[in-house]
Amino acid sequence: MRRAVVLSLAILAVAGGCKKKELTPNLNLENKVAVRPVTLFFEGPEMLLVRETRNVALPENPAGALSVVARELLKGSSNAGVPRIFPRDTVIRSAFLLPDGTAFIDLGGNTLSQGWGTGSHEELMAVYSVVQTVTTNFPEAKRVRILVNDEPAETLAGHVNLSRALLPSAAYVAH
């Protein structure tokens, strides 16, 4: 059964670990942006994920940075020869992090919404490009749960089980 998840609920769960005083932020400080290197994972010629480091302007707070990094991943590699993993119309709807270390990445886009027709290898590369990117850049993120259109998804394309959060796996990364 598909069950809707509204992001604010997870936000509330995050807020559960906060002191009341800190809920009235100095937005200028919290929205401070700095250019920092991020590590993104794309599929390399050996059909494994390879790292690509890129300088990106990131909010200093991880909550804001998480979605920025995820969106940077979907832009694809800066090397034009590296093909795009996700369907071109895929978008990051939102991203958030729970106090227990579970990062949620909510994907959207026409192709994923209507059923992505691809094989298990490509689906594995897509899913783990997200998992590796998130857990590499945000040490507090221990595992990643992928949603589609704000809801739990069984798979992206009929193979990789997304009904639970996924741990990073070196098996999909070139060394």
């Binding site: 992001l7 604010s8 936000i11 995050v14 807020a15 800190e22």
Partner: peptide, 21 residues
């Protein structure tokens, strides 16, 4: 950690206000 969580919460709470349509 509490600090970082609060920052996450604040940012996400802001996002939710925008998303709440």
């Amino acid at each position: 950690m509490t600090r970082s969580l609060s920052v996450i919460a604040i940012a996400l709470a802001s996002a939710v206000l925008l998303l709440a349509q």
